[in-house]
Amino acid sequence: MIEILEGFPGNVVAVSASGEVTREDYEKILMPAVVAAVSNRDKIRVYYELGSGFTRMDAGAAWDDLKLGVAHYLKWEAIAVVTDHDWIRHAVDVLRFVVPGQVRTFRIEQAREARDWIVSPLDKEKIRLS
């Protein structure tokens, strides 16, 4: 299940995942939120929290995740992935170089730091290097 998190500025799509994330979660929750955010902005940011209750992403959700990333490729300014699942952290670290914006991973106990980072001004030098 994906849940939209409140309290973030309009240029940040913030979500929390728990249990199994499905294609329906992407199509009914995440994709509309991203489309709404990119409709009137040059760049957007994503805060994605996958806590201990997150178990898996089904194949349809993984496919939609890829499609969503490619469809809005040049819109990604920053992505914060917050999780203690090492396999997710490693996957993000491997794929971060194909994302045009900044990508950082945080542990669950660093959620406050991740939230502060995703809404703060970004280091422009790091954006060019990402």
Rank of each mutant, 00 (worst) to 15 (best):
Trp63Asn: 06
Leu129Glu: 10
Asp58Asn: 15
Lys43Ala: 01
Glu125Val: 15
Val12Glu: 01
Phe97Ser: 03
Val12Ala: 11
Val119Phe: 11
Gly10His: 07
Asp25Gln: 06
Glu109Val: 14
Ile108Pro: 00
Trp117Gly: 05
Val82Ala: 02
Asp116Glu: 14
Arg45Met: 00
Arg128His: 10
Leu68Val: 10
Gly19Ile: 01
Ala78Gln: 13
Asp65Ser: 07
Val13Glu: 12
Asp25Pro: 07
Asp86Gln: 14
Gly53Ala: 04
Asp93His: 12
Ala61Trp: 12
Gly101Trp: 02
Ala78Trp: 12
Met1Lys: 00
Arg115Ala: 15
Asn11Cys: 03
Ala59Asp: 06
Val81Met: 08
Ala80Thr: 14
Phe97Cys: 02
Val103His: 01
Ala37Pro: 04
Arg112Asn: 09
Tyr26Phe: 12
Asn40His: 12
Met1Thr: 13
Arg89Met: 02
Ile44Ser: 03
Gly19Trp: 01
Leu66His: 14
Ala59Met: 14
Glu49Ala: 12
Phe97Pro: 01
Glu3Pro: 11
Glu77Asp: 01
Arg115Pro: 04
Arg89Leu: 07
Val98Phe: 15
Val99Leu: 04
Arg107Ile: 08
Phe97Val: 10
Ile2Asp: 04
Ser16Ala: 11
Ala111Asn: 08
Glu125Gly: 05
Val13Cys: 09
Leu74Ala: 12
Ala33Thr: 00
Val15Ser: 08
Tyr26Ala: 03
Val119Met: 11
Thr83Leu: 05
Arg56Leu: 10
Arg89Trp: 04
Tyr73Thr: 11
Ala91Val: 07
Gln102Thr: 13
Ile127Arg: 04
Val98Ala: 14
Glu20Pro: 04
Val92Gln: 13
Lys43Trp: 00
Gly51Glu: 11
Arg128Asn: 09
Ala33Cys: 09
Lys28Asn: 14
Glu125Ser: 09
Tyr26Asn: 00
Gln110Met: 10
Glu6Lys: 15
Glu6Gln: 15
Leu50Ala: 05
Glu3Thr: 14
Val15His: 10
Asp25Ile: 06
Pro32Ser: 00
Gly101Val: 13
Val70Gln: 02
